[in-house]
Design a protein around this nucleic acid. Structure first.
Length: 850
DNA sequence: TATCCGGGATTTTTT
DNA sequence: ATCCCGGATA
């Protein structure tokens, strides 16, 4: 390692080879804090990892002084992988991980200080929801009045804003109730020794805020803080960063507050709906004293028609830091826009085109992606692909650790670790069925409430047959715990699967083969985790003392005689645990699972449970399979493909109705479109349909405004661009009208022109006759649904999407879409402050506003 | 305790 | 259209 080299002598540094000037500036920046505005495909991850490598190599930082934070485990892993390939240094000493992963790490290290049991469990969203449901039930709150999901998201957004129940402003009875329930929920979690995702973040933040010693420890330690996807940070995460970086604290040259490098792209901020605050970027510039953000605008991914389109589109957004992508790869091909009669025809066209791409143009299967705005759109695509026997893969869906059978197995394991975990208790107390019904559970819950104990503990005092059954369940767990002592994690899970009856249950189930396989896979996952984390493979997963006597929270392990009367068996709260087994490979200063205060090591089981909660696992199974990729635009962020289709480019779908009513929503949709466009390397197809089956109803939508925001010279319409003006004049394009397609019926009308994107509609768009997208093909697709009769002026009472209408009660509104046909035809109208209404056209008196 | 029916919602999603 | 959930029923 060349420790002596410094910024001035970087010229020949191999790390910096092949970087453009901006990338190099970002990598070697030393003047305090900076913001790197990294456009799509501009080599962001490379810059980030190279910077870390450079800091290490030039001796400006030691591994322990580096904190790099990302949003997804995938990104964190990617960073680690690339980094280890660059510099011969162990990444163990660095803190590289997700916000939540790092918070978890911090809380484990200071469990006592923050008032959490050492083996606290992490609730995922599912777990949290069931915990919330219990709160609501215990307080007899009508789920009609306050749906569990509502309360859950209320709690989460409070935490994201850094608010404890006491900090939430109370305005009316409703909000008072919510705050009270928030408080009850918190108490419940605390009692059970569980934390949700928001809590990891919030409690870590509070630790840093309230404990000067801890804060100074981390502020002193981390000299270099790097943040990925900064545009996705929420308010709390930003505050957390400020604390850990020492912003706002007296600058002390000796101690050297961290140098923070935030990397992000405001144009790719697409997660406002879950709390992301683009405004953090501007705040960062101001509050961290950024002189001049570094812009990475050179794109290494796409041809310029694609980039020009992206640039032109995003220029329609108002609040931007400003950035223009460019490339020297040449123009490439124009974007291809295609309109189909309906969603089925669209899917068919895409499949045909995909075939062409593979067979004629030689694109690799896995290099072709079909993107869509909403998951529901995948249906028609899938069936077309299946019919055509084109292999495909869908991103998203259930992840490994979210599968029901895995959740069940984990619940058993969690009970071994923490018997107070009522969520886990309830999940498996009667699964497989043990004759413990809802009645028994209710009784148990009452009992536990009276005693203020966990359900597990309360089981001891239950009467009658219910009590017997509950006790035998507790016995089962205790026996399992006993049997697990001194066993490896692999064996513990094996024992659990057998004795719990889970395996037997799924073996007996007729469609249980997959589930059994998954359970077996769980054992493998656990073992490879143990190895990866640096435990010795044979390390035992439940602790023993030096005499081989089990220690821990379990009743038996605490010397409780299980045969004694239950009343005499006090439940000992979270005990101090000692570990007999010394996992030699585990470096106490560097492992995730070592308590820095006590030096205590987390058991492999506890570590694995944490891992399972924090990392739900891949949902992109068999990555090796060559298949077309199907996913939502959101899921595509960060990925790239040679050829990309964006399906469903219609007003109402993309941009989506629910986002169209306000400027911010619309701009986020546009950023989403920007993300979609910039996924493509070589070829980009934009697709829309005139008629689409959605929620069981046929919708007729006009073309997405985004299509009109693309530069004309960069796009090519494969089907004639809809041109209401000329259609109005009775002109028909080629043979298209014969298909019963887009210009049948009376879609044209003077009002149509008033739609927001009529500006260029009068212009003539060249239509290529006889191409392979010609009329005959269109006819072939027309085997689907009938022409859009309902868009006929008579049946819709002259109301169309895009119009402004007047309603006696709600006032003026914008027609977002027409749904249904004939007498059932409804208009979705946005009345601004009156909200969006679905009005039956046959009934509602709507007047078109001139 | 398992299953069946009806009602309701149905943008996007990571930790 | 379809999926999920909860309540009611066999």
């Amino acid at each position: 390692m060349n420790v002596s080299s410094h910024a001035g002598t970087d010229q020949g540094n191999p790390l910096l080879q092949g970087l453009n000037p901006e990338q190099r500036a970002a990598v070697t920046f030393t003047g305090g804090n900076t913001l790197i505005l990294a456009g799509a495909g501009s080599g962001k991850t490379r810059v980030l990892t190279t910077r870390i490598a450079w800091l290490l190599q030039t001796g400006q930082a030691s591994p322990g002084g580096i904190l790099a934070v990302t949003f997804t485990n995938k990104a964190a892993k990617e960073m680690v992988t690339r980094l280890t390939a660059m510099v011969p240094v162990s990444v163990r000493g660095m803190w590289i991980g997700t916000f939540h992963g790092l918070c978890n790490r911090m809380l484990r290290a200071h469990a006592q200080t923050v008032g959490l049991p050492k083996q606290f469990q992490i609730l995922d969203m599912q777990d949290q929801l069931s915990a919330v449901k219990r709160v609501l039930k215990a307080h007899n709150v009508d789920s009609e009045m306050l749906p569990p999901k509502k309360l859950q998201s209320f709690i989460n957004s409070c935490k994201e804003e850094g608010m404890r129940p006491g900090d939430v402003p109370v305005r009316d009875a409703d909000s008072r109730q919510r705050v009270e329930l928030y408080q009850v929920y918190e108490q419940q979690c605390q009692k059970e020794g569980v934390v949700d995702f928001g809590e990891l973040m919030l409690r870590s933040f509070e630790l840093l805020r309230d404990n000067a010693a801890v804060r100074e420890h981390y502020q002193t330690r981390f000299r270099h803080v790097l943040v990925d996807e900064f545009q996705d940070t929420n308010r709390l995460q930003y505050q957390w960063l400020k604390l850990i970086a020492g912003a706002g604290y007296a600058r002390d040259e000796q101690r050297g507050l961290a140098c923070v490098v935030a990397v992000g792209d405001d144009d790719q901020s697409i997660y406002a709906f879950r709390g992301a605050r683009v405004g953090n970027m501007a705040d960062f510039v101001r509050e961290f004293g950024v002189q001049q953000p570094i812009k990475l605008e050179q794109n290494y991914r796409s041809y310029s028609h694609i980039l020009d389109s992206a640039n032109a589109l995003i220029a329609h957004n108002s609040q931007r830091l400003g950035k223009t992508l460019h490339t020297d790869q040449g123009a490439g091909e124009a974007l291809r826009i295609h309109e189909s009669v309906n969603d089925l025809a669209e899917a068919q066209w895409i499949v045909d085109e995909v075939r062409q791409l593979m067979q004629v143009d030689g694109f690799a299967r896995q290099e072709i992606a079909v993107l869509y705005r909403s998951n529901a759109q995948s249906r028609s695509l899938e069936s077309a692909l299946i019919t055509a026997k084109v292999p495909y893969r869908i991103y998203g869906g259930l992840r490994f650790f979210e599968r029901a059978e895995i959740k069940h197995a984990l619940a058993y394991l969690r009970l071994l670790e923490n018997a107070n975990d009522d969520t886990s208790f309830l999940r498996v107390v009667n699964f497989p069925a043990r004759g413990i019904g809802a009645r028994s559970i209710e009784g148990l819950q009452d009992q536990a409430k009276v005693k203020g104990s966990s359900l597990y503990a309360a089981s001891a005092t239950m009467d009658g047959r219910a009590g017997d059954k509950l006790r035998s369940f507790v016995q089962l767990i205790e026996q399992l715990r006993q049997a697990s002592m001194g066993q490896t994690l692999r064996d513990v899970i094996g024992l659990m699967l057998e004795h719990s009856g889970l395996l037997a249950h799924y073996r007996a189930e007729k469609d249980g083969v997959d589930r059994v396989e998954n359970l077996e896979e769980l054992v493998n996952a656990a073992e490879s985790f143990v190895v990866q984390e640096g435990y010795a493979v044979d390390v035992t997963s439940l602790p023993m003392d030096e005499h081989g006597t089990p220690v821990g929270q379990g009743l038996a392990s605490q010397g409780v005689d299980l045969n004694a009367p239950w009343e005499e068996q006090a439940i000992v709260p979270v005990a101090q645990r000692t570990l007999a087994v010394q996992p030699a490979a585990l470096d106490p200063n560097q492992s995730l699972f070592v308590d820095v205060d006590t030096g205590e090591t987390l058991t492999p089981l506890a570590a694995f449970l944490t891992h399972a909660a924090l990392e739900a696992g891949d949902n992109q199974a068999q990555a090796g399979q060559e298949a077309i990729q199907l996913m939502t635009v959101h899921a595509s962020k960060g990925l790239e493909f040679d050829a990309v289709f964006i399906a469903g480019l219609e007003e109402g779908l993309f941009p989506h109705y629910n986002s169209m009513s306000d400027q911010d929503g619309l701009e986020e949709e546009r950023r989403l479109m920007y993300v979609a466009i910039t996924r493509a390397r070589k070829r980009l197809y934009l697709s829309l349909a005139q008629e689409r089956m959605l929620n069981g109803q046929t919708q007729y939508n006009v073309a997405s405004r985004f299509l009109d925001e693309l530069p004309e010279e960069s796009v090519r319409w494969l089907t004639p661009k809809r041109n209401p003006a000329s259609r109005n004049a009775g002109e028909s394009f080629g043979g298209f009208s014969s298909t019963g397609g887009w210009n049948s019926g009376g879609r044209q009308s003077s009002t149509y022109e008033r739609s927001s994107y009529s500006a260029r509609q009068a212009e003539d768009v060249p239509y290529r006759e006889g191409g392979r997208y010609g009329a005959s093909k269109q006819v072939a697709y027309g085997s689907g649904p009938v022409p859009p009769q309902a868009s006929d002026g008579i049946e819709t009472h002259g109301i169309r999407a895009g119009q402004k209408v007047f309603h006696a009660k709600f006032g003026e509104g914008d027609v977002l879409a027409i749904e249904g046909k004939g007498a059932d035809a409804k208009a979705k109208v946005n009345f601004g402050r009156h909200g969006t209404k679905l009005l039956l056209l046959a009934v509602a008196k709507l007047t078109v506003v001139a």
